[in-house]
Design a protein around this nucleic acid. Structure first.
Length: 275
DNA sequence: ACCAGGGAAGACGTTACATCA
DNA sequence: CATGATGTAACGTCTTCCCTG
């Protein structure tokens, strides 16, 4: 991906807002469940704060019976895992676990981690998806980054011989990865913007210095309308733009600087700046 | 019409495991 | 073989939306 592509995305230098739609102050407010993640790049980098609001509501008790002692992380204690996973699987009653043996990696895929076989009650087994499973999930993700209807999840799960919960988790993680990558791209872009603006600022400072110097050295020069004084962006010399009677030897005849003054707009796509 | 309660689903942060250099 | 880095499956927590009574 070229930098130019990134530059035409309308990303603005600013934290927590964009030119098109105002991003929420809190990152969590970005959540719009019915709005699938737009994979096509539309940067909206925000540095929102996750509110540290006190925990009011026990989340999803139908989904998982929260083990209150586990609040430091579900995996911290190996002994309690099987308990947890037995409690939490909402689909478990209706979904038949199947042990897949078609491995292109040497791993067991989509085995039920708990339930019927609580592997010794010694923490969860990390299961790697097979290439085929990943490929199908990716394919599905390309079309829809969210599992819109519950049906889709069930179908995918059946097709992949996974639990619906696993499909759900995969999509969650996949969205997170996409977002992370996008954030990295945005970060790079902002860095470049910053560099460009710094350069531009330096150039303008220089221009200002030159103008000040000119004012001191040639007061007569300043009798010209101020608007006619501009600086050539390529040779960085001050001249009376639009005037062919330029007495200053600083403006070479080869200078492509046109007759009309121009001003730097960092957010204009055809400005002299990279952004 | 308004409100409270609760379920569903998603984001986010974290943990633990698998794999590889 | 040990180890640190990396990728990712799985989880807990929190928020928002929507439905229902």
């Amino acid at each position: 991906m070229g930098f130019d592509n990134v530059c035409n995305t309308g990303l603005v230098l600013g934290l927590g807002f964009s030119s098109e739609n105002t991003a929420p102050a809190k990152a969590s407010e970005n959540i719009r469940p019915k709005m699938p993640v737009d994979i096509s790049y539309e940067p909206n980098l925000t540095l929102g704060l996750i509110s540290g609001a006190p925990y009011v509501k026990v989340a999803d008790e139908n989904v998982r019976l929260v083990n209150k002692q586990q609040s430091g992380g579900a995996d911290s204690g190996g002994s309690s895992f099987s308990n947890l996973s037995v409690k939490r699987e909402r689909e478990i009653g209706s979904f038949e676990e199947v042990e897949t043996t078609t491995m292109d990696h040497k791993m067991v895929s989509s085995r039920a981690v708990s339930d019927e076989d609580d592997d010794g009650g010694n923490g969860r087994k990390k299961l790697r998806l097979t290439k085929a499973q990943s490929a199908l999930l990716e394919e599905s993700f390309k079309h829809h980054s969210t599992l819109n209807p519950q049906k889709q999840k069930q179908e995918l799960a059946r097709e992949l011989k996974l639990r619906p919960r696993q499909v759900e988790v995969w999509f969650q993680n996949r969205r997170a990865r996409t977002k992370l990558k996008q954030t990295e791209v945005d970060c790079e872009y902002l860095k470049k913007c910053c560099e460009t603006l710094t350069d531009e600022n330096r150039r303008l400072q220089k221009e200002l210095q030159e103008l000040k110097a000119l004012k001191v050295a040639q007061p007569l020069y300043m009798q010209l309308p101020a608007a006619t004084l501009t600086m050539c962006p390529s040779c960085e010399r001050v001249g009376a733009g639009g005037s062919t009677t330029d007495s200053s030897s600083k403006t070479p005849s080869s200078c492509p600087f046109g007759s009309k003054p121009h001003f730097f707009n960092p957010f204009s796509t055809n400005s002299s700046a990279a952004c």
